[in-house]
Every structure is written in structure tokens, then in C-alpha cells.
């Protein structure tokens, strides 16, 4: 239901933009710049590079707007473009000695919620954070795209350059692994982790 609405509005906004609307262009920027920056910040700690890449993505968008195809998910489109720009620069700049566009590092530290002051919760937090580190970069990225960015399996598989089934498996195994790691260490920890859903 929510997705159907998203579909129409994104498709409409995009087609407005393609037919020359500067307003649509600005809306696209305002809507997505924050999530683009956040996504980008998982690949590099250098904010300037992310700024530059977002800039370049939008310049290209404007420049080639007459040749662009329709899309029903602008975010996916922007994430793919941003990743391409970022990898190009990170590769060139040699920021990483072993920067590998196939399996780039995906930094992921957890946000400490305001309620993590009691002992039990902070231990849970530590466990989960440690478990995240045990995942592969691709797994972290896939989980991020699915649960934080809210992309569908279809969409995130495009961002990850893999097929639908592989992307799904990546996430399932990732969550499974997280659960195992946490269970292995303590089975009671998650009990009070969340209030009833």
C-alpha cells in the first residue's frame, strides 16, 4: 500500500524532472541528499569526497536528463550513481591501499540509543556491534540497504550488483549470523532489549 504510493510519486517526480522541471530536481535533491550522504559515509570517512560525489551525481543527472530512463525508485538510482562516483574517486585517490571495488569496506558502527545506560543493555549493544563486525562487508551493506534505507530486495540487488536470490540469501545469512553470535554468548540478553513490539 505504502509502496504503491511511493511508486506513483517517485515515477511522477522523476518524469517531471526528465521533462525539465527544476522544481522536481530540487525536490529530488532535498529528499535524498541526507540519505545519500549517510550511505556514502559507510564507504569513506572523508566528508569532502562524499560532498563532491553527491555534487557530481546531481550534475550528471541534470546534464543527461534527456537520455535518462524512467525509474520507479529514485533512491536506488541515486545510490547506484553515488557508489559509482565514490568508487572511482576512492580508487584514484588510493585512500585505501587495498581498495577493492568488488568488496569495498562498509563501515558500520552502531548508534548508542539513549536507553543503553544500564549494564545489561550496553552489554547487548557491545555484543551486537561485535557481531556486526563479524559479517562480511557485503552483508553489512545489504542489511543496511534493506533495514535502514528501506530498499526492496529487487532494488538493493541492483545497488549490490548481484541477482535477487543472492541478495536475499546474503541478508538472511547475515541476520542468522547476528542472531547466532548473540545467542551463543548469552541467551537472555535480548529478552529485555526491546519493549514489546
Amino acid at each position: 500500500m505504502g509502496e504503491a504510493f511511493q511508486l506513483t510519486s517517485d515515477t511522477q517526480l522523476w518524469s517531471d524532472f526528465l521533462s525539465g522541471s527544476e522544481k522536481a530536481y530540487k525536490i529530488i535533491y532535498d529528499t535524498h541528499v541526507q540519505s545519500m550522504f549517510k550511505f556514502g559515509s559507510h564507504f569513506t570517512k572523508n566528508d569532502e569526497i562524499i560532498h563532491d560525489c553527491i555534487h557530481d551525481v546531481f550534475i550528471d543527472l541534470h546534464k543527461y536528463r534527456t537520455n535518462l530512463q524512467t525509474t520507479n525508485n529514485i533512491k536506488k538510482y541515486l545510490f547506484i550513481s553515488l557508489k559509482r562516483k565514490l568508487f572511482k574517486i576512492l580508487n584514484e585517490e588510493g585512500r585505501y591501499v587495498h581498495f577493492d571495488a568488488e568488496t569495498p569496506a562498509f563501515f558500520y558502527s552502531l548508534s548508542v540509543s539513549s536507553e543503553t545506560d544500564d549494564d545489561l543493555k550496553s552489554r547487548q549493544f557491545e555484543l551486537l556491534e561485535k557481531a556486526m563486525l563479524e559479517l562480511s562487508n557485503r552483508q553489512r551493506e545489504a542489511i543496511y540497504l534493506r533495514f535502514i534505507s528501506g530498499l526492496s530486495y529487487d532494488e538493493l540487488s541492483e545497488v549490490l550488483h548481484m541477482n535477487y536470490q543472492s541478495a536475499r540469501n546474503l541478508i538472511f545469512r547475515g541476520i542468522e549470523k547476528l542472531r547466532e553470535s548473540c545467542q551463543r554468548k548469552s541467551s537472555i540478553l535480548f529478552f529485555s532489549f526491546v519493549k514489546y513490539h
Binding site: K26, Y29, D30, V33, Q34, F37, K38, S41, H42, D47, H51, I54, H55, Y108, S109, L110, S111, V112, S113, Q124, F125, L128, M132, I143, Y144, F147, I148, I175, L178, R179, C182, Q183, F190, F191, F193, V194, H197
Partner: peptide, 28 residues
């Protein structure tokens, strides 16, 4: 419960663009 708590617990610590940065970038 475990699955929920994991998914809810993996909120990443992320920097945000300030309002100034968003405006500045748009100006560029």
C-alpha cells in the same frame, strides 16, 4: 523477539549533513 531486537538494534551511528551543508551543496 530476538529477530526484532536485532533488526531494531542495528541502527547505525551516522553523521548527518547540517542544514548549512545541505544548502551549500545545493548552491554548488
Amino acid at each position: 523477539r530476538e529477530t526484532i531486537s536485532i533488526i531494531k538494534g542495528i541502527i547505525p551511528k551516522e553523521k548527518e549533513l547540517s542544514v548549512e551543508a545541505v544548502n551549500h551543496l545545493w548552491k554548488r
